[in-house]
Amino acid sequence: MTIQEAKFQYLLRLGDSSLIIGHRLSEWCGSGPILEEDIALINIALDFVGNATAILGYAATVEGNGRTEDDLAFLRGEREFRNLLITEQPNGDYAATITRQFLYDVYTYYLYEALKSSKDETIAALAEKSHKEITYHLRHTTEWMYRLGDGTAESHERMQNAMNDLWMFTGEMFDMDEVDAILIKEGIAPDLNTIKEKWEAHVKPVIAEATLQVPSYNFKQKGSREGKHSEHLGFLLAEMQSVHRSFPGAKW
């Protein structure tokens, strides 16, 4: 695998995760628990779509085959997407959405922090911009972790259920393969073991303060690195790509 190929794969991982979790958040539009949260969720979804556009745009440039960010977003199938499994999990109730977002935000907080010093200048610049946004996202989800975890008996139970359901998707965030090995060597991407340490050190105290338990099981789902997704992604893409694919070659 060449550095260029590794970089392309790596950018798909970053860009696809943003695109898919942004899509999930946008599904909340108009049905949030309170107007302020509707605004927050749309705003955060917009950050992710912006981030995905920039990263997939760069991925297309790196690939050099004349594809665009829209080609990558709208004309790839399920098996070609490289987003983390956690990002495609359905919204569920607000507890599931907040828990999913919190676990992912802490991950991207440390990942993008590290990417700010990537030797690839474009990645470093994109990370610089995104990290500012992620800092706000994380503040938002952390506050809701406390509110819902330590709110009422009902909210507590919903949060613990969400944590139990989603914890199994956190393991593959730190999986590394040849792509990572090549980019770590080049100083382009960080070693995910270091991100994992920071993630655990951050996530666990918040879970405890939210009066929740870290699930006791060790089982972890994996597969997104090879494009092996949950059944949810196919439906998401069918919806997202429907208009684009119905009018081949059209300009919008």
Binding site: E27, C29, I39, I42, G50, D70, F74, W252
Partner: peptide, 26 residues
């Protein structure tokens, strides 16, 4: 139509617009 916008630019514009509407409401 946010989830089905035909390209990324249109999706971002529509998200921003709907966010504006929510802000106007508030």
């Amino acid at each position: 139509w946010i989830t089905r916008a035909p390209n990324l630019r249109r999706k971002a514009i529509l998200l921003a617009k709907v966010q504006d509407e929510a802000g106007h409401g508030l």
